[in-house]
Amino acid sequence: MKWPVRVLELVGGAVTGVLEALGRFVVLLARTLRGLVRPPFDLRALVSQVVRVGVDSVPVVLVTAGFTGGVLALQTFNGFARFHAEGFVGSVVALSMLRELGPVLTGLMVTGRAGSAMAAELGTMRVTEQIDALVALATDPVKYLFVPRVLAGILVLPMLVVLSNGVGIVGGYLVAVRLLGANPVVYVDNTFQYLGMEDLWSGLIKAAVFGGLLTFIGCQRGFDTTGGAEGVGRATTAAVVSGSLAILVADFFLTKVLF
């Protein structure tokens, strides 16, 4: 075969592959969105996923938020001290946590914990024919597997972010006041002085979107698994990588829209 034909074949094959994957993704997304608004809903499955995505993620989210708030206070305190603006550290920590770091870091941590677990679980179900068994039992696997997980992500991420914000602010306070000797009254005053409800809401909207994104991508990667145990490993890695990237990209556009 002549090389130009070969090159064309390779390029054509790659383009077709990408379009096929994109098509499958869009179809799955549409089926999931339809499932999210169409009853019946499996309340038991939803509660179970809320526990797995939310409750089980609390420790890792709290540790991340606490240390992030602390580091933020440490960095800004030293910087602000150069022009005697240490009093504003509380504001910076609170605004950063509510508007940006709370939702994004929580989203990334939950992607690593729950998104990867979903990809591994659904991937294993795929390679052991459990998903085929669902279809054979006249059960829509998207409604049964995706909907409770995605709904749990959308509901739980904002709650985790509220926790994360609180612990981040406390972490910042402890570092600034206890470690660096900032005035506690001034610090607390400044923390809340420049905060508005829109800061909280915008962070929570981001969190709900991230929750939907990371759970859907985790499920989709698992659902499309091929190739046995190795395929499950690939799907798990892909769920973390693409889930994290999706959160960072969505964060940019949401920030642009919300602020």
């Binding site: 179900m125 052991t128 024919e129 459990q130 085929d132 068994a133 279809v135 054979a136 039992l137 006249a138």
Partner: peptide, 14 residues
């Protein structure tokens, strides 16, 4: 499909 019963190679139990 509800009029079928299918048994899979390794059982495919949930």
């Amino acid at each position: 499909r509800r009029r079928f019963g299918m048994s899979f190679q390794e059982g495919a139990l949930f």
